[in-house]
Design a binder for these strands. Structure first.
Length: 573
RNA sequence: CGGGGCGUAGCGCAGUUGGUAGCGCGCUUGCUUUGGGAGCAAGAUGUCGUCGGUUCAAAUCCGGCCGCCCCGACCA
């Protein structure tokens, strides 16, 4: 493609609203323009990237035996009422009425639509298994759209849904999809990691997220430095502590005037945060519960919510805390407390601890779990942390990463098939619910994540597999007949060799072309200049490395072709 | 939804005590330049987010609304 014939409006300065590299560079590089908060138009270069990613996904899903379909973006509200999610999905679900007053939603995900499709036509185990996927525009009315394509409201997603007759078959499919996702992200040329994940609003019993590793990632990940264990911090466990012998020292009340926070109390009493226990009062569906975690640990609300089986869990307001404990905030403790007490395993394992005394300006020392208070439940209610012992192996410890979630696989079981009566007749003539899985990839987010992982101060550094074009061809002096002759010839030959090339034949100064080429970020750059042509050479440079190579004009197409072909399959240079 | 900030030319921004709008980049034309975002000259471009109020006079002061961004809460 000739650059003068394609719409690539590059900018020297990015809009002030763009903050993260992928957003800034996609706008500056002429890939993307904003239409509304979290809603974007793709320009020709941006859409080519999306098409490249989609093609890789399509090829690998098809290869794995899944079949592509296309469900509607607009879904009747009654299907969502049937699944029960009409009431639980909340404000992120964009709802509207048609002219007759019937409820509709714009699909944020398509379990309801696919189940409705499959249950209508599939009656027998002979028609199973089935794995159907689509590449669709979704809309989620995020409480706060941000960061360009990373967290848009409208976005493109590949979603697949599998239906099996038996649990074993469905488990096998889950593993197969996990392997397929690994192939897809490898082909995209991304450094990523699959981690164990929470199932969230989609539900189900088993889930992995595929996380592109990048400093700017929103998700905190923990991985073992010794075995293969890796998990989102929402889900990660640490090895349960060995219980220490309980202290024999007697419970003792100490004055701690005005000392409320962990820092204040530990400084005042000369302790360390790990000697203290935080008592965090929450309202679970409106009822007060207390949670105990060590002073240096973070409560994990997802784990607590799961244990409680609560729909809604919020930190109690100051008034609720005073109602429940009889003391101002900062002095809550489990001793003599009337609410249920959820006690983290690390707290149960402490020989004794310091905690609030449920009266103003006082704490208890030498508090022993099960002697001085009775926990309702002892369990894992904290975030695992960097340095904790691995829950899977004997020797490893957890290290931290940041990641961008680009895909997630779920083992759903019968979460949707039971309420929506997606049943089949088994060989024994019995009606059974289908066993489901669902598998998503954020196509637009993959593009953003690729840039977050691959950019420098000058612009994007695309992996070959998802770059909008594979090479940039720059004519540095369009007024020079020899330069133009060589550039035109190379453009034709690169095309014949099957290289996707963007040919900059604009009447611009060389500096402008170099700057734009760096910004746009195509993997290879061939610069045709007057001096080189006189010597029979052009310059070849890989975007990801600083060296510039002089290559004979007759050889450059072959050299570029070899490099590009080698990298098309993913994995980078 | 809580906290903070912003809305002035395509983009980045300035605009003082209220007096009818400017700078840089980009854009158009010409000449000169031509290996890392050129120089000179001449131009074009505004519902100052919006509605109302105060005033002889509002980008500027006051109020409502809308939009956008950041932090938090939330989230396949």
């Amino acid at each position: 493609m000739r650059l003068s014939k394609t719409h690539v409006p590059t900018l020297k300065e990015a809009p002030a609203e763009a903050e993260i590299p992928s957003h800034i560079l996609m706008v500056r590089g002429g890939y993307l323009r904003k239409v509304a908060a979290g809603v974007y138009s793709f320009l020709p270069l941006g859409w080519r990237v999306i098409q490249k990613i989609s093609r890789i996904i399509r090829e690998e899903m098809t290869r794995a035996g899944a079949q592509e379909v296309f469900l509607p973006a607009v879904i009747p509200g009654e299907l969502w009422q049937e699944s029960g999610r009409w009431d639980v999905y909340g404000e992120q679900l964009l709802r509207f009425k048609d002219r007759k007053g019937a409820d509709f939603v714009i699909g944020p995900t398509h379990e309801e639509a696919i189940v409705d499709l499959v249950r209508g036509d599939v009656r027998s185990y002979r028609q199973l298994p089935l794995n159907l996927f689509q590449i669709q525009t979704k809309f989620r009315d995020e409480l706060r759209a941000r960061a360009g394509l990373m967290r848009g409201r409208e976005f493109i997603m590949k979603d697949a849904y599998s239906f099996h007759a038996t649990d074993e078959d469905a488990q096998r499919e889950y593993q197969f999809m996990y392997d397929t996702y690994t192939r897809i992200f490898n082909r995209c040329g991304l450094a990523f990691r699959a981690v164990e994940a929470d199932t969230g609003a989609i539900g189900g019993s088993l889930s992995h997220e595929f996380q592109v590793l990048a400093e700017t990632g929103e998700d905190a990940l923990l991985a073992c430095d010794s075995c293969g264990y890796a998990a989102n911090v929402e889900q990660a466990k640490a090895r349960p502590p060995a219980a220490a012998a309980p202290s024999a020292a007697a419970l003792e009340k100490v004055a701690t005037p005005g000392k409320r926070t962990v820092e204040e109390v530990t400084a005042f009493l000369g302790l360390r945060p790990e000697n203290l226990v935080k008592t965090l009062l929450h309202l679970a569906d409106g009822k007060p519960v207390a949670v105990l975690v060590r002073g240096d640990h973070n409560l994990n609300e997802i784990k607590l919510k799961r244990e409680l089986g609560a729909r809604d869990l919020v930190l109690a307001s100051d008034e609720s805390v005073e109602d429940a404990t009889g003391a101002p905030v900062g002095f809550a403790g489990p001793v003599g407390l009337g609410t249920p007490i959820y006690c983290d395993l690390e707290v149960c394992a402490m020989p004794s601890c310091v905690c609030g005394a449920n009266v103003a300006d006082a704490h208890y020392k030498n508090v022993v779990c099960k002697r001085d208070f009775q926990p309702t439940v002892c369990g894992d209610f904290r975030d695992a942390a960097v340095g904790d012992a691995c829950p899977r192996c004997e020797s490893g410890h957890l290290v931290g990463y940041r990641g961008i979630e680009v895909g997630q696989v779920f083992f759903l079981g019968t979460k949707y098939s039971v309420p929506m009566k997606c049943n089949f007749l088994d060989a024994d003539g019995k009606e059974k619910p289908m066993i489901m899985g669902c598998y998503g990839i954020g196509v637009t987010r993959v593009a953003a994540a690729a840039i977050e992982q691959n950019h420098d101060k000058d612009g994007i550094v695309w992996p070959v597999a998802i770059a909008p074009y594979e090479a940039a061809l720059l004519s540095l002096q369009v007024g020079d007949p020899q330069v133009t002759e060589v550039a035109e010839r190379l453009y034709a030959e690169l095309g014949k060799a099957g290289i996707e090339v963007l040919y900059d034949e604009r009447d611009e100064r060389p500096g402008v072309k170099f700057k734009d080429a760096d910004l746009i970020g195509l993997p290879y750059r061939i610069a045709v200049g007057k001096k080189g042509v006189a010597e029979g050479v052009v310059e070849l440079k890989a975007r990801r490395s600083p060296e510039v190579h002089k290559v004979k004009i007759e050889e450059v197409v072959r050299v570029v072709r070899e490099k590009v072909v080698a990298e098309r399959a993913g994995g980078g240079a």
